[in-house]
Design a protein around this nucleic acid. Structure first.
Lengths: 155, 155
DNA sequence: TTCTGTGCAAACATTTTGCAAAGTC
DNA sequence: GACTTTGCAAAATGTTTGCACAGAA
């Protein structure tokens, strides 16, 4: 945890940005909620618990900054809100998501499933891939099981 | 062109919706600009040329409706705007996109590159895939060529 | 007439910006 | 003192909603 903050601090410094208390609080919230996909508002509310004097605009500005530094990735699952997701240590690419249409849960996939696909895109389309966004929409394991149970009960 | 309108008309009717003049004008704009990735505003302005009395809300409502019917797909490339993309005839899945970070161009890929990946997701994660969103961010062929030329010139 | 669809304007939600004050080097 | 960062409030943006009216079945 602490070493990840240190690392981000160095990344900021290398571009002559400072890790202010507000920025640090924001980063800590992101680290503590790595599994979730927080919106700016979510982050704001959580940061406010530790640092009540922070403003929403600052959170936006911080998230924007972290986005530029590729510390976080900004994603959008189709509802109108941007969500911010910490990039895993050493990850070159953004991880993938499984969004369940029934319960709304979002599962993360770390494995890079796209290596082969990227090779095809680079060779067949001449497109130099720098990053990707891959999201599957469907039904998660749990909801599939639930709906089977319900079907069984109602029949 | 006409037969695609007919088809959409039938799809609407099957759910007891009507293909009103406004809706038809909207669909036509989408058909005529299939290559582009129009925002609601873009569609609105183009529809207005043919049917000046149409309101923006109607365009939104139409796009929403077409989205539900899976006639169009709503996408978001990271700028704050939703874009609407006609689903190709007979396509079960949404097609993929290559977004160039230099010139902003968006290229479409029809091939289903994800068959294998989906199989892995279904077997390893137990996730029933219904649809996907795949976007690559990078540098398109043209911009790569341009930057090579510039490098050569400036050296 | 009943129901669907429309246009307009107002409401809404999210995000960005201007600016003066505060903090840092 | 020059420069960065912040908080607040206002503005901008994109989208949705309420409602009275128009149109089709």
């Amino acid at each position: 945890m602490e070493h990840r903050i240190e690392k981000i601090k160095k990344q900021l410094h290398s571009q002559s940005y400072k890790l202010t208390p507000q920025r640090e609080a924001t980063v800590r919230v992101l680290l503590e909620n790595e599994e979730d996909h927080l919106s700016a508002e979510d982050v704001y509310l959580l940061v406010k618990e530790k640092a009540p004097e922070i403003g929403l605009a600052t959170v936006y500005r911080t998230l924007e900054l972290l986005s530029e530094l590729k510390v976080v990735d900004k994603i959008n699952f189709g509802d109108g809100v941007s969500r911010y997701d910490l990039r895993k240590e050493g990850a070159e690419h953004f991880h993938h998501h499984l969004v369940c249409g029934e319960c709304g849960s979002v599962e993360e996939i770390e494995d890079d499933l796209l290596e082969d696909v990227e090779k095809i895109v680079e060779s067949d389309w001449g497109f130099k891939v720098k990053d990707h966004r891959l999201t599957f929409h469907g039904v998660c394991r749990k909801c599939q099981a639930d709906s089977k149970t319900n079907t069984a009960l109602s029949s």
